[in-house]
Design a protein around this nucleic acid. Structure first.
Lengths: 162, 162
DNA sequence: TCAAACCCTTACGTTTACGTAAGAGTGATA
DNA sequence: TATCACTCTTACGTAAACGTAAGGGTTTGA
């Protein structure tokens, strides 16, 4: 008769194993548990958290949502909504809603960052002209060059003020 | 003989004025001063901070850099580098460097967010198929439908686990 | 059975960009 | 001169996502 404990521990991972496989720290995993994002499958009789392989998947999922800009608290809400949905289609509908919102938000962020990148490019183009500035001029006298005010981008203009 | 004080105060702004014109709070402006990002032009004899109009520009500049992802501390370094550059062209070279770095970083962020948006779209497309799921099925039984594992996006798969 | 390597809980620390409150003085106006 | 709105300094509070340390058990393998 084989040892049940041995057979069990073959497929169960300790928190440190999960940490290594996900790149997270043990502390982070503990935190996720405190927040209700991930529970160990069982505890060893000594109290060790024992996880199944899908614990790794759950953490990768959390990571991805974090990358998308969800806070851990939002992720928690996400899970609760899921768990409280009586039927699968209803649960999926909620998930679709959340994802749709986040997709819109992400696209807005992309648009905003694109505008900022454009501004940066403009500023850099403007700064090219500063190469030919009188080499001995002190930075405090910057602004004294011939370039008219309205062509100075805000990103550059703000520095020299004061 | 006109009152000098009157003439002065005509063009000087109190911290509350600056706050209103920039949408920042008084506390925030105080913080910027603590961090060395913005100093009042003078103090009234009673100790009130008095700013010139370019204070507003400086704050708008700070706001823009924050939008770009600079921390206040980074902005401070930015200003110090500028102030310590002996000549204008040298100062501008440093600014170009910082902006170039940030531009690259911003583009990387845009690329990352674009990939995430794509993943979201994929997941949403997948979830369309869940509309036709057996209406009575409980969410806990999700995954029992005929769809093969490898076509389930991580963003969806991670929810149902555990 | 012993030791090294892990794990447990509890709880305070860290960073960022302010929020908020207290107690007191200032400035412009009636 | 009396107000009332504003401002001053000082200093503790806040939210997020862990980091870190302390004191003490648990596993596991030699």
């Amino acid at each position: 008769m084989p040892l049940e404990i041995g057979a069990e521990s073959l497929s169960l991972l300790k928190v440190g194993d999960i940490a290594r496989r996900t790149g997270k720290t043990v502390r982070a995993i503990h935190l996720y548990e405190e927040l209700g994002l991930l529970n160990p499958a069982v505890r060893s009789k000594g109290g060790f958290r024992m996880y199944r392989g899908d614990g790794v998947k759950r953490i990768e999922w959390i990571q991805k949502l974090q990358d998308m800009g969800f806070s851990l608290t939002e992720i928690k809400v996400f899970l609760r909504v899921w768990e409280e949905s009586a039927t699968a289609p209803k649960a999926m509908a909620t998930v679709r809603e959340i994802f749709t919102d986040k997709l819109r938000e992400t696209r807005e962020t992309i648009a905003r960052l694109t505008r900022l990148a454009d501004e940066l490019s403009e500023s850099l183009a403007f700064l090219e002209g500063c190469r030919s500035c009188d080499q001995g001029q002190h930075q405090r006298e910057c602004g004294g060059c011939g370039r008219s005010d309205h062509e100075v981008p805000l990103l550059v203009d703000g520095i020299a003020k004061r």
